[in-house]
């Protein structure tokens, strides 16, 4: 296979090569000839306004979508060559409203992938307990509750715990804190930084919030109309003269004038 024979640096976890994606029957592509390398252990933030293609980019990684042209390599292998189920089980996924199963208890939600992977009961419950503690929820108190009995922030913590359950090397997060109130969001962002230092996962993080991008990202990929217009560290982002980056920077400056 061409993708495996080429000179892949071992520290590239996800590699987009000339990826175009257009939904069936639509001519204008959502993703347009995108090239991107995500390195092991980094948190790559996809920043951009609504409709710029950042969520689509994310969904191409765990093969919720398949590229119209080009290829997406995960661990050096084309996503289409992966068994989709296997690929998804080793890729954690967190979405905005957590997407918890409303009829599953918190514990069952978190233990879902381990159970699918066939872990035995004691190992699953030990793992659920460990993860709930990790995201700051008391297992005795929360394990048997239903999602409807939690606050938004608690639900999001459970969503993160669920994504981490089978210890996936790669984590995809689609505006995970977007629907939370500012205080809860700030708390979760801080905890994410701490957590990420401990776990050292490869993370692709989608957001439209420039502060969040600068705070969490190892690198920030600024997207516009299906392309990456800037890819750099947060520091470089702040110095960039790229027009989109400047526009974002100006939103940061606004409060000073008030």
């Amino acid at each position: 296979m061409k993708s495996q024979s080429s000179n892949q640096p071992t520290d590239t976890v996800v590699h987009f090569r000339g990826v175009t994606y257009a939904p069936p029957g639509v001519n204008a592509p959502i993703i347009d000839a995108l090239d991107l390398e995500v390195r092991r252990g980094e948190t790559l933030v996809l920043l951009g306004e609504s409709g710029c293609g950042k969520t689509t980019t994310l969904r191409l990684v765990n093969r919720l979508l398949e590229p119209t042209a080009g290829e997406v390599l995960v661990e050096g292998r084309d996503t289409r060559a992966w068994d989709a189920i296997e690929l998804r089980r080793r890729t954690g996924y967190v979405i905005q409203d957590a997407g918890l199963f409303p009829h599953f208890s918190v514990g069952r939600n978190v233990g879902l992938v381990p159970v699918l992977e066939g872990w035995d009961e004691p190992r699953v419950s030990a793992r659920v307990e460990e993860l709930l503690r990790l995201v700051g929820l008391d297992p005795d108190k929360f394990s048997s509750r239903l999602p409807a009995e939690l606050s938004g922030g608690q639900r999001q913590r459970v969503g993160v715990a669920r994504a981490l359950a089978a210890d996936p090397p790669l984590l995809l997060m689609d505006e995970p804190f977007g629907a939370l109130d500012p205080l809860t969001r700030a708390a979760l962002q801080r905890e994410f930084v701490t957590l990420q230092k401990r776990l050292n996962k490869t993370v692709i993080f989608v957001t439209h919030d420039v502060r969040e991008a600068l705070m969490l990202g190892t690198r920030v990929a600024l997207m516009s109309a299906g392309r990456i217009v800037l890819l750099d560290t947060p520091g470089a982002f702040l110095d960039s003269e790229e027009p989109h980056a400047r526009a974002y920077r100006e939103t940061l400056a606004l409060p000073e004038g008030l």
Binding site: L64, I85, R88, I95, G99, F101, L116, L172
Partner: peptide, 17 residues
């Protein structure tokens, strides 16, 4: 709920599951 279904797919559940 769409997000629930999407989460299920993204968790690596098979169609039957």
């Amino acid at each position: 709920d769409r997000s629930v279904r999407e989460a299920a797919v993204a968790m690596g559940m098979t169609d039957r599951q």
